[in-house]
Deep mutational scan, measured.
Amino acid sequence: TTFEIRVGDLRITLHNADEEEIRWAEEALRRGIHADEILRTLEERRR
């Protein structure tokens, strides 16, 4: 599944994310964390 998060002009697309990952990514985007860093962190958490 694919889920797109939008916060203002910012956007990130997550693939195969669970609800916790989606909530975490949305909050991180709101705090101004760059999408590349969010994706990198999620990848590390999945390992």
Rank of each mutant, 00 (worst) to 15 (best):
R40E: 14
E26P: 00
R45Q: 10
F3I: 14
E19M: 11
R23Q: 11
A28K: 06
A17G: 04
I38Y: 01
E20C: 14
L29M: 12
R40W: 14
H15G: 05
I12Y: 14
L29P: 00
I38K: 00
E20A: 05
H34P: 14
L10H: 14
F3E: 09
E44T: 05
R31F: 12
R47G: 15
D36M: 09
F3Y: 12
T41A: 15
R40G: 06
D18S: 13
A28H: 05
T41C: 04
T1W: 13
F3D: 09
R23C: 05
E44F: 08
V7E: 07
N16R: 05
T2V: 10
G8C: 02
T1C: 15
I33Q: 05
E44R: 03
L14V: 13
I12H: 02
T13F: 05
R6W: 15
E37T: 10
H34E: 13
L10C: 05
I12W: 08
R6G: 08
E20Y: 09
A35M: 07
L10D: 14
E37W: 10
E26W: 13
T13V: 14
R23W: 08
A28L: 08
R40F: 14
T2L: 11
E43S: 07
A25E: 00
E20W: 10
E26I: 10
A25C: 04
I22H: 04
L14M: 07
E26N: 08
E4R: 01
E43G: 04
I33M: 15
L14H: 00
R47I: 15
W24G: 00
R45I: 15
T2R: 10
A28F: 05
I33S: 06
E21F: 04
I33P: 00
L29S: 03
I5K: 01
A17T: 11
E21L: 02
L42V: 07
H34F: 10
W24C: 06
L29W: 04
L39K: 10
I22L: 08
E43T: 03
T41K: 10
I38S: 00
H34R: 09
R11V: 11
T2H: 15
E27V: 01
T2P: 12
A17P: 13
E37I: 10
L14C: 05
R23N: 09
T2C: 13
R6T: 14
A28G: 07
N16T: 04
R11H: 15
E44S: 05
D9A: 08
A35G: 07
F3A: 11
E20M: 08
W24A: 02
R11W: 12
I12Q: 02
A35R: 10
R23A: 11
I5P: 01
L42R: 01
H34M: 13
T2G: 08
T13Y: 06
E20N: 10
I38L: 07
E37H: 10
W24N: 01
R45F: 11
E4H: 05
D18Q: 07
N16F: 07
H15V: 07
G8H: 04
L42M: 03
T13N: 06
H34L: 12
R45L: 08
V7H: 07
L14R: 01
D36T: 10
R47N: 15
V7L: 09
I22G: 03
R6Y: 13
A25K: 00
A28P: 00
R31I: 14
G32M: 03
